[in-house]
Design a protein around this nucleic acid. Structure first.
Lengths: 136, 136
DNA sequence: CTGTATCCCAAAAGATACTG
DNA sequence: CAGTATCTTTTGGGATACAG
């Protein structure tokens, strides 16, 4: 039936293959690996306290109201963010990281710091790449 | 990144505000915070050696050749990945992480492991959220 | 103030075909 | 094998209006 030498691939637990084919984990990683998600998590996490909607909005460069609301909803649904609405007039809504969200923030903040630290190095690599491509 | 003119706010260095308004770093963080970027980096990093194009392609669930090529190009340009073409027939191309890329992988792998570990907890949070929203 | 609801466009991504 | 080129579809995301 098959002409392939290896019809069924065995994936050993704990190997690199185990990660990539663990679809639920890949799906969650894909969800986290999103521009507005990481910026929102970093904003809430680095402030370290509950923030009002308008405050978050001001702190994230270029985010639209639609995307911020959408992202906060998703993070709330995933249990990363706790939303607290105070029924004053006008209404006041605060967002803060849950313990789960704080755990993720601990990792994302390292990525953020890495990015800040390596910005120059990456810029140089880009300039070098573009120069080579233009020259030849 | 920001198109609007910002009022001259005073931002103390080292504060949480310093991070979010350091636009080059935010831009780089936004670039990294991408589904195919993180999956590609995790695949290359966890394999720990050079991988052929077709090998990478097989290891990333659902990636199209267009997106994989585009992502690898971007990572190469940013200095994260080294591309080596061997002019055999047919051609053989290998990709591997640079030291810069390995540094980032060290952080992304932790995010990946976190995602694998917290998948169940996130699923529960989603189920709880959806139940509450349906009931009321 | 904090949203929700539309409309709409641009960009991202998938599918397919073709090539060195 | 490892792409490139082109086309189509889908999604992301901005603008606007409006409501609790």
């Amino acid at each position: 039936m098959t002409t392939k030498a290896k019809p069924a691939r065995q994936i050993e637990p704990g190997t690199y293959e185990a990660y990539m084919h663990d679809c639920p984990a890949v799906a969650l990683l894909s969800t986290i690996s999103n521009r507005w998600v990481s910026l929102t998590m970093c904003t809430l996490g680095s402030y370290g306290d509950a923030m009002r909607y308008s405050h978050i909005s001001r702190e994230i460069p270029g985010v639209s109201q639609k995307m911020l609301t959408q992202t906060l909803r998703m993070l709330e649904r995933d249990g990363m963010v706790k939303r607290t609405a105070t029924p004053t007039v006008p209404v006041r809504v605060d967002y803060e990281l849950t313990p789960l969200g704080q755990g993720l923030y601990g990792l994302l903040s390292q990525v953020r710091d890495w990015a800040a630290d390596k910005t120059d190095e990456v810029d140089e690599a880009r300039a070098h790449y573009d120069t080579r491509k233009t020259d030849q």
